[in-house]
Design a protein around this nucleic acid. Structure first.
Lengths: 286, 286
DNA sequence: TTCAATTATCTAGTATACAAGATATATTTG
DNA sequence: CAAATATATCTTGTATACTAGATAATTGAA
């Protein structure tokens, strides 16, 4: 709360402008770990390697924490559409300044989880129906690619690992632990993507799944749904084990089609939670 | 350059904490433009409507400008991988403060176009080979969905509009105007997505295309390539006009397969421009 | 000369102050 | 009382100052 003590220790002395040679990255070889050069000392020891695809594993930044917390609350519909996001309140709750909070909010805006009205306010976004519809379709297409590749590549040990996840889901379903069940569900699909060597495609799916997940949270827990999912997962793996890609894809589609059920119903139940984008039904193309 | 004059006009007076009722959004109806209520005056007149799917059309923010400029330079390979992004320099170039610059850089980091090394520096990212590979595969799958839907929905006028784009491409190819040609290429694919009522899926494709485009910029302009593309586009539309979805998809795949040609060649030519993510070839799934 | 430790100087991350605009409340006017 | 205007107070957007950490340059010792 209290202002942190600050003291000026940096004068206004002008620095020479362009004196810093842009240091080229010195680890040339892109392949494997061709650690040839001991020419350089322990440079970039604890530093994050510039390897792509891995989110910086550095110490959690405050903005990261706020982002994940807010995101989780929005996706779980704890913060329903229309809820104002008050930067000041978050600032006080976490005891941090506006900068990291703002950073988190901007990331959420990028994901369309919040709407920022310029000098007015920030609100949890309504679920865009168009994005729901398109997300479901796109996911089907991408999961098909993933399942097909996974069927071709899966080793027996990987099949077993996948079965282990299904078994865990069975146990969680018996316990009735829905949150954990859905985390395992994500793990299942992500693992298939890993087997397929398409982790990036799964990332894309997850990104689209955000809005779908918000919608799913509106649906009541249906009796036997978790058991059904377990059986559907098992069917996918059975087909994969038999190297029957077509059947695996078909099973996966059966599995995914369960989502599409009754959007209209829920849209009418909570009209304020959804938004209809008329642009989608505009037929002009030029 | 010069500091902007500032004066304190806001005292430190304490405000009552929770006195602001979170004003619910007042435009209830989600469907069409059910403009029933004249109850409210000219509220939200020039303000950005909370309609989803449309980027805020408000006055260009500085961060937006910097973001687009940097993004354009990175995608066009004007800024090659490894180039340092100096916030201070950009700050001076645009005559703005660090905040909007930082905002832009963070958005680029989200897109994996730059790598931010925490207390060290920010650099244009190398092209992730895995993302290239996955992007091409994913795009094929999603374009298939789009083409199939577009074939089912396309009206004669839309077919004509698409042919108009192809014709424009022909003219640009004759003139040899590659940049404009590629813009028209984008327009062509985007238009098909619009016809298919899947604009969001095209957005996803574009997002993945970012890295692919950087790679494409490395390839030399091959003689006759533009003419070939024109013919391939025409083939897609011909099939669409005949309501032959399978053929349209096949034609589109032929078209897209041209990209995959010779990644290995260019990777060896400019090894420093690419990065190989070993995680993709890791087979553990749990 | 070579290698290690020190110092200097850069960077991103954060905190805070101010500016510009939008909504809500209070006030005035018919 | 109703409607239009004026004022107050909130909001996001921006500017600037400072902190902590990492790289690069310098210095010193073997």
């Amino acid at each position: 709360m209290a202002a942190i003590g600050q003291s000026t220790h940096l004068g206004e002395g002008g620095r020479s402008e362009g004196d810093r040679r842009p240091r080229e990255r010195t680890d040339k070889g892109t392949m494997a770990d061709s650690g040839t050069g001991t020419r350089l000392r322990a440079r970039r020891a604890n530093n994050a390697p510039p390897a792509h695809g891995i989110r910086a594993p550095r110490a959690a930044k405050n903005s990261e924490i706020v982002y994940h917390d807010l995101r989780s609350d929005i996706i779980s519909m704890t913060l329903v559409p229309g809820t104002p996001i008050l930067e000041r309140e978050i600032t006080e709750r976490y005891g941090i300044s506006r900068t990291p909070v703002r950073e988190a909010v901007l990331r959420l805006a990028e994901e369309r989880l919040v709407d920022v009205l310029p000098k007015s306010g920030t609100f949890v976004s309504r679920i865009p129906l168009s994005q729901l519809r398109e997300g479901i379709v796109a996911r089907r297409a991408l999961e098909e690619v993933i399942v097909r590749a996974a069927t071709a590549r899966a080793t027996p040990s990987q099949i077993l690992s996948l079965r282990a996840i299904i078994q865990k889901q069975q146990e969680l379903a018996d316990k009735g632990d829905e949150p954990a069940f859905h985390r395992a569900d994500e793990e299942f699909h992500a693992s298939i993507a890993t087997v397929a060597h398409y982790p990036g495609i799964w990332e894309v799916i997850q990104q689209m799944r955000v809005q779908i997940e918000r919608y799913r949270r509106l649906t009541l827990p249906q009796a036997g749904r978790m058991q059904l999912i377990v059986r559907e997962h098992a069917a996918v793996i059975d087909a994969m084990e038999n190297c029957d890609a077509d059947k695996a894809v078909a099973c996966m589609n059966v599995h995914l089609d369960k989502l599409q059920l009754d959007i209209a119903v829920f849209r009418d139940l909570w009209p304020d939670y959804f938004i209809y984008d008329p642009a989608v039904d505009t037929d002009l193309i030029a």
